[in-house]
Design a protein around this nucleic acid. Sequence first.
DNA 1: GTAAAGCGCTTTGTATTGTCAAGTGCTTTG
DNA 2: CAAAGCACTTGACAATACAAAGCGCTTTAC
Lengths: 114, 114
Amino acid sequence: MSEEFCPVHASIDLLQEKWVLHIIRALLAGPRGFNAIARDVGGVNTATLAQRLEKLEGLGVISKEVESTMPPRTRYELTEAGYELQDVIASIDSWARKHIKLDETGHDIEVVAG
Amino acid sequence: MSEEFCPVHASIDLLQEKWVLHIIRALLAGPRGFNAIARDVGGVNTATLAQRLEKLEGLGVISKEVESTMPPRTRYELTEAGYELQDVIASIDSWARKHIKLDETGHDIEVVAG
DNA sequence: GTAAAGCGCTTTGTATTGTCAAGTGCTTTG
DNA sequence: CAAAGCACTTGACAATACAAAGCGCTTTAC
């Protein structure tokens, strides 16, 4: 019964969680506060974002620093390990620019060979 | 109000959908049938898998070939564009091997600086 | 000098999404 | 000749994400 542990499978499980890649991409541009991440990511709801950030912090991908409680000011940034995810984002970036286009309607996406 | 289109954001939306990266990783090892993908991916339910495959086919990331209807035999494989996602999987792979470990309990994962 | 906007969240419903279990009709393997 | 495998579908259920409102307080904006 022993499912042997596969780190690649585990990290895909992590990265495919909704908003995680978006959050990492946002933080690669530099440290940010809660609402700034929400804006950069676009369309995430704050309850979900709070929970994702908490999880990523617990895992050691990002770190949270409370700079002041009142007025509230928090700083999220990538840890050393988290920062190394830049290669993943970079390869998504170059794939996307080569293969992702808008279709004729302008509403949907298509993947082209180009 | 015009949200300008960002292909990178759009492709993250695609790749973060549950099971998508696992499916692509499985198909990078070669073409496979429906149940073989399910086994490689591990833990996906067939209803969800069917719908993910249909979507990926519609986008042009994978192609489906029905080899015989009875007995049923189908072949899914990556398109040219889909195959180029190997760089994404490869960078996840090398990040994972460097940074993902099991914690002491053996039940949870942790991200280490290493 | 006061109203509005911003900060980092939490809370309460509701909608969307994924899951479980079972089942289909047929062939090949044991 | 029963059991297992193929590629799925269906329907009821559970987990997840959502929108919207609100908190207590400061900093801008008029």
